[in-house]
Design a protein around this nucleic acid. Structure first.
Lengths: 119, 119
DNA sequence: CCTTCATATGAATATCTGTTCATATATTAT
DNA sequence: ATAATATATGAACAGATATTCATATGAAGG
């Protein structure tokens, strides 16, 4: 049998008001999707480590690889993700590419997460 | 050829200080892992929608399913994830189970994320 | 007790994601 | 130019994850 998405709770009048109010105030689909995409970027321990490393100072790719004990390739791939989501910015100097946090939101989001954990 | 993790930048003296400082201040592995796990929970649009819906008021499972236009089963699975990560709490009333946000951190984390997007 | 309804759970599947390997690009020095 | 080094990229594979389907649990009413 196939579950219909419209029939639900046999149309309970009690909750119908709540459902309508929630529906009215729900942000557009696309925004919610983008928000989830953003958090997805924070949802990987390798990327979290990279961001934490950049809390201190700007670092080049091989420095980050050394700090994390990972290959340059893996780090480079993750930096690409962080870059395309505007969480880090970079600066080229000779053969090196130095990465740093893009703005303070990054720090604040991580701090909020940490606060939640400490409970 | 196998990339060694230790050889990196041919031991550049310039960055070595930075690397050591970063290493010293890096939080323990497990904490960083837990933090990533937390953000991973926010990194799914279905769960984000559920949390947004609960911003307004507590809702039972079928109400949420109706708001999202998804099956009860899918919502229930996701509520399980949110529950086990302490992002939502629940209250039973007869056959219904009403879910609500667990604490204000949830709201704040989402707000920070939204702020980041608006740039 | 038996049925109905709301919710939960387990297995299966399809999709997504992170790392590795091989290789390309780009910059500096010889 | 050529070699060496730092970084980036693409394909492939392994592991994770979200949804679906089928079914179980648990509460309320007849």
């Amino acid at each position: 049998m196939n579950q219909s998405e419209t029939e639900c709770c046999e149309v309970m009048q009690i909750h119908e008001g709540a459902v309508q109010k929630v529906n009215a105030d729900m942000p557009p689909e696309e925004l919610l999707y983008d928000l989830a995409e953003l958090f997805k970027v924070f949802g990987d321990s390798t990327r979290i480590k990279i961001l934490y490393a950049l809390f201190e100072s700007e670092l080049c790719v091989c420095d980050i690889a050394q700090v994390l004990g990972m290959t340059q390739t893996a780090v480079s791939h993750q930096l690409r993700v962080l870059k395309s989501n505007k969480l880090v910015k970079f600066r080229k100097e000779g053969k090196n590419v130095f990465y740093s946090l893009d703005d303070d939101h990054v720090r604040r989001i991580i701090d909020q997460g940490m606060e939640h954990l400490g409970e």
